[in-house]
Amino acid sequence: MSAPLLDIQTMRLSVKTDEGMAQILDHVALTLPRGRILGLVGESGCGKSTLVRAVLGILPRGATVDSGHILFENEDLLRLSEQELAKRIRGSRIGFIPQDPYLALNPVFTVGDQLLSVMRWHAPAPPGVTGRRARMRHHRERLVELLRRVQIPEPEAVLDRYPHQFSGGQRQRLMIAGALACSPRLVIADEPTTALDVTTQLQILKLLKSLVAEFDISMLFVTHDFGVVAQLCDDITVMYAGQTVESGPTAAVLADPQHPYTQALLACHPDRAQSLLGIPGRVPSPLNAPPGCRYAPRCPHAIDDCTRRAPHFAETGAGHLVNCRLAETQPEAA
C-alpha cells in the first residue's frame, strides 16, 4: 500500500489559558489513505477543530505543539513556516470547508471576489495562459464551471452577489466550490452540515461523496454524528477528550466497536454522539487531565493501570486500531 496522504502521529498540543496550560490534544493519531473519506468523530470540545487548525497551521495564539508530526504527502507540516504553509499548502493543496458557511463568508464582499481571491493566489493556470488578466479570466471560467457542478443556479450571476443573498444550503455549495477551486489533494470539512436542515444536509453529503471520486481527492470529514459517518465515510477515527480512542474502516468500527467509549457512544445514541447522557461521569477538563487514558474515570472496565499506561494502539482487525488496555490483553480472543 502506498503511503497515506495524511498521517498524524503522537500529536500533543497545549493551549495557554488563564488557569494554566490545557492539554487539548494528547496522543492523537489519524491516518487518511489516498482517495478515501475519513470521518473524525467526537463530542463537542474533544479537540476536532483544534486538530484541523493544527493541520492547516492556523492555531490560535497561545497554542503550542508539544510533540508529534503531521505528514502530508510525506512532508511534515509542523516543520513548515507560516509563509510556506500560506504559499503552498493552505488553499492550494488542502481545501477547507467550514462549519458555518454564513459566518465564513465576508459580508461586505461579493462571493466572486472572495472565491477568486483564493484562486488568484493558489489556483494553477494552464501553461498557455500568461498575464494577470488572462489568468483571472481562466480562474473565473473554472469557478463558474465548478459552481455549475455543485448545482448553483445561474453561476455567472452569482459571482456578483453578496453572501446574505444566498440560502444556507447554497452557501455551503459555494464553500465546496471554493475548497475545490485550486485543485487540492485533500479537502478538510469541519462539520459542514451541522448548520443545515436534514434534507439539505443529505443533498450536501451526496454531493461531497460524488465529488471525492470525481476530483480524485481525499477528505477529512469532521462530525459528531455517527449517522453521517455511516453514510459518507470509508474510515472512522473516534476521539475522546483530546485522545484518539479508536480508528478503522467504518463498517468494522460501527459493527464491532472495541473501545468502551465507542461502545457506550453507539449504545446510548445509535445516530448521534452529541449527548452522552447515558454515560456516567463527566468529560475531564484538559487543564489537569489525568495521564493515560482519559476515559478511565468513566470506564466500567478500568483498572489502576489505565491511568498510568501510555496511550498505545492495538490492532484488533484489519486496520482497526484501539487505544485501550482491554484490546491489548485479549488479543484476537473474543
Binding site: 492547516l56 492556523i58 467550514p98 465564513a104 472572495q114 483564493v118 493566489w121 475548497a179
Partner: peptide, 10 residues
C-alpha cells in the same frame, strides 16, 4: 469566522 476561513484557504 470569515477571517479563520480566509486564512484556512490561504
Amino acid at each position: 469566522d470569515f477571517v479563520t476561513y480566509a486564512r484556512a484557504q490561504g
